[in-house]
Design a protein around this nucleic acid. Sequence first.
RNA 1: GCGCCCGUAGCUCAGUUGGAUAGAGCGUCUGCCUUCUAAGCAGAGGGUCGGGAGUUCGACUCUCCCCGGGCGCGCCA
Length: 712
Amino acid sequence: MYQTLLQGLKGALAEHIREKYGVELNVVLERPPKLEMGEAASPVCFELAKRLKRAPRHIAQEIAASLPRIEGIARVEVAGGGYLNAFFDRAAFFAATVAEGSGEWPFAEGAQGKRVAPRQEPGQPSGAKEEKKEKKKKVIVEHTSINPNKAAHIGHLRNAVLGDTMVRLLRYTNHDVAVQNYIDNTGVQVADVVIAFQQMEKKSLAEVKALAAQPNFDYLCWDLYAKATQFFEEDKVRAGKLRGETLKSIEEGRGEAAEMGAVIADAIVSLHLRTMARLDIFYELLARESEILHLHFWDAAFEKLKASGAIRLEASGKNAGCWVMPWRKEANEVKDVKEVKEKSAAAAAGEASTSGRTEEDLDKIIVRSNGTVTYVGKDIAYQLWKFGLLGKDFHYRRWPNAPGAEQLWATTTEPNEPGAPQFGGAEAVYNVIDTRQAYLQDVVAEGLRALGHAKEAENSIHFDYEIVALTPRCAAEMGYELSPEDAKRPYVEVSGRKGFGVKADDLITRMLKAAEKRVRQKHPTMAGAELQATANALAVGALRFFLLKVTRNTIIAFDFDDALSAEGETGPYCQYAIVRIRGIRRKGHDRGLEKASSTELKSDANLLAPESRAAIQEILAGAGNEDIWDLLLHAGSLDYAVDAAIGAQEPAFVTKYAFQLAQAFNNFYHKHHILSEADAQKRAFLLGLTELVEKQLVQALVLLGIQAAEKM
RNA sequence: GCGCCCGUAGCUCAGUUGGAUAGAGCGUCUGCCUUCUAAGCAGAGGGUCGGGAGUUCGACUCUCCCCGGGCGCGCCA
């Protein structure tokens, strides 16, 4: 509701200024530092003062006096040197937030039931009422995309949790989202494990099949892959030869190496799915590289790239025989190219420029001189498919035994299975990939642009994030030996190759145990399914919140103590506020107090009736009740937090919101005893407010993929 | 060498397009459980926002320079 009011205020101010002064400007709004300064403020008069060459305060006074009434805003005052401070109609804010989504503005004067800017559909799990909405924007979110040759580690969890949360946010804001998980089942990483089984472990295909059926196969491969890395470093020539042969077999899908690779990749993918399901993360499509190869996606893309002149065959120079894409991204990059050209010219003229890169270095090789395509080339083909621009499609089959209620599909070269949905053809694509791949993602977008797909290049969103590393203390705790240099650094990067890192399942299990222990202590009688469900909600809540509360470009230096914490700015803190609310509801219900369930609140004529307005207003404006209004204001600001999160592509804004709402509630909880409130009307209102807080906080947590608990 | 990111309280981090007195959590210290669950609340202490110049009515935020740290730049993926 807060966002709705801001938009109304912003529009009204802009229009008023245009009419009164003939000035068109962007009205900036901010949250005042203190509640007594109102709920929204604008420094727009400072900007206006510059244009009109008049004192900002005088302009502010003029505007405050002449501004027409704005829906939901009680008054606008002048403050400081020329701020315009808006004060909300508090009772109306309560009613409007409760009624949010219905499109009705309660208490509207003059215009009965006038529609306010309707909020998008609340995030119902199944499309409850979608017919009245405008067409949803179709987007693809690709996340997780772990190489299927070892167990998932904590860095993969950050990827999946970020991606999954973005999916939830996009669905909540009326997007048609397809979640895809890219499986590089024919790459060197799988090949390496195949080689390790064959050469180092001397395992037959049948033996590997047996191992792959075991539940700890991903852990086994984790260790094996680390050993393989060492094995390859011992003899680079041997490594190159083995890799070449094995990779060729796997890519062509022929021979025992190919079959073993498929067994390994499929088994590991299933284990990854199981791991992610523990955190309520699911997918709709597994897009596999084997199909990109066998359905000749690259060939189609290659033809387009050649035909459009986006890539060219180099006849001479260091890239002779390669197809390269010239690097010429947008105007702001041209400067760099120019600089490089100048340097290049200087070098040619014999001037001292020993290490300057030449123009040639900016070109990106797409096809090697031996005719094989690079990773980026395949990625361009895949990205074209995502936008429906390739002119080819995968075939689809059901993925067997996938966790979760929804059907999971995988690509195949076989004919479509009946019931296969349409994938691809999105308007926007989010690729959740860590920030180290920024350059390659730029090349992919540049490829689309070079093909004349400027809009799709623009809508190719590299949803980047910083890595998860381990603190040296954590590394030591896990028994890893660090070099003296590493031990001094603030963090050490995890590495699947080296087998260095915290495995996802280990971490989840450890958090589950910690949560269970805590719940047992507080509720000795709780057992069975209830205990498991509670511990699970708390563990997942702690972990997801931990990974989401920092902004994307912050490196997480992982430490068990931080992750396991359940105090302060954590998931369990937010969950605890809900538990308290539910405790009040239960007890209130037992005592037969009115409005003790959220289902009653919404349809309750009492609190939302016009005759309740004065009483509610009195409570919200009453001396000593600032914290009540503060709580309500927070409760009504979910839309604002979500819009900011979507706009900045920053899920951390939602964790911040959830924490602040929980904090406002805890503050309120200690000052106001609800069930013993003597004034029946006030008690009813406080109960109503509490239920509203619960609804908003639960919704915020749903967006974060965190479940609320009944007790903890 | 070129490019990108980071530097805010003892520690870990917020600070949305430039806006009012720079915030939170953890840790430290002091209080608060016979009243809706103390995984909580209240209070105290803690800052040259890496340094310097500039733009602006106004800079943690924008520009330039410098210092310190990380990452990327391959006919690997």
